[in-house]
Design a protein around this nucleic acid. Structure first.
Lengths: 198, 198
DNA sequence: TTAAATAACTAATATCGTTAGTTTTATATT
DNA sequence: AATATAAAACTAACGATATTAGTTATTTAA
């Protein structure tokens, strides 16, 4: 039932990731991929639904890995420590896999079932990491969005060389995270003061 | 000295912006642009240095507009008010011109003189907007990076539909900005406590 | 040993960016 | 006013790309 097991999906994805991370996501073409795998490009259609299908698979693959490293980063931690490690893991992943990280965001269908599942799991993970701040109702979800914005924004700008200044990037990131966390604590204090007026 | 003044750069850029904002930046091709302008694609080479040249021009054009709306947003304001208006103007621009905003970031050469100039001016503007927080030395520049990360991250994720949750985006953004500002104030307090110990 | 299923192939098409060379036309010059 | 020049727009052609259709080959199952 499976003749000629030369190529398979993991092999294809591995090669695609390699191209994406070294040459950039836009260099991941069926032609370049086929060449790397020593195969003619139409052969790839037996494993992947064209270029857009490949990109989808790549996006899911990246989201899985990102979720994994984030999960590892927060286990056994809570509060500022958890958020800091989460953040560090996020930017470390984006730095180690620039092309793959790119792929997770230019993911086509937010409709895609797999993508939705992974996105949901990621939100859950971050919500748990933020438990210490006692955010009520939607506030936790807004905070997740905020943290994600900040992490993605930093990673994205770093990758694109958007930071022209000769300034240590790790320091910038640490300060950004510190500022956000300080803000979170302040918001918590304000909420407490609100519910328990003087 | 200028025969056949049919096409010119502003006209071309306007058409390109229109395609970018309605169909997405990747749909801005010499072919689609030529069709929209009722011209053959090689004719565009008389005004623009190929597709990459067009993208550069588009990036500069977008950066100019973005800097302009940001400048308008902060004039006559200071402190939290200035930062809040700056942030609102930023995301409003990204929402109104998704394709053009995209172009400002996938700008090729950070080496480009025009790009560097605009980037520098933008940094200066934001530094001035942050004056009220009395950030010392590099701290102001780190804060600029942080604010930009947060603004870009939010805009980028919003555009890509990366926020799957059914939650008001404006509220998320306001809270994110509030949290960042609260953090900035807290950092200022800590710095004061440091320099003037008990 | 043979049949079926499937992977990989060749061939072909449409679209894209790009270059080279030609034609056309508005402006400048006589 | 007639002409020369410069620049814009054109046609033709090439290489690269994704994709489809149809063919060949090979592994597995019967």
């Amino acid at each position: 039932m499976s003749p000629r097991i030369g190529l398979d999906l993991p092999t294809i994805l591995q090669a695609a990731v390699e191209i994406a991370d070294t040459r950039g996501l836009e260099e991941v073409t069926l032609a370049s991929l086929a060449q790397k795998l020593d195969v003619r490009s139409p052969s790839l259609y037996n494993h992947v639904n064209g270029l857009s299908g490949l990109r989808s698979k790549l996006a899911v693959h990246g989201l899985e890995q990102l979720l994994h490293v984030m999960t590892q980063a927060v286990v056994g931690r809570s509060g500022d420590d958890a958020v800091r490690e989460l953040g560090k893991a996020y930017v470390a992943f984006a730095r180690a896999h620039p092309g793959l990280y790119d792929a997770t965001l230019r993911a086509p269908d937010p409709q895609d079932e797999e993508v939705r599942r992974l996105a949901g799991e990621t939100v859950d993970l971050v919500v748990r990491a933020l438990q210490a701040y006692e955010l009520k109702d939607d506030a936790a979800l807004h905070a997740v969005r905020g943290l994600r914005s900040l992490l993605h924004g930093f990673s994205s700008l770093e990758q694109r060389g958007g930071f022209g200044l000769p300034l240590d990037l790790d320091v910038s990131f640490r300060l950004l995270l510190d500022t956000f966390l300080a803000g979170l604590h302040e918001m918590k204090r304000r909420a407490k003061a609100e519910s328990k007026p003087t």
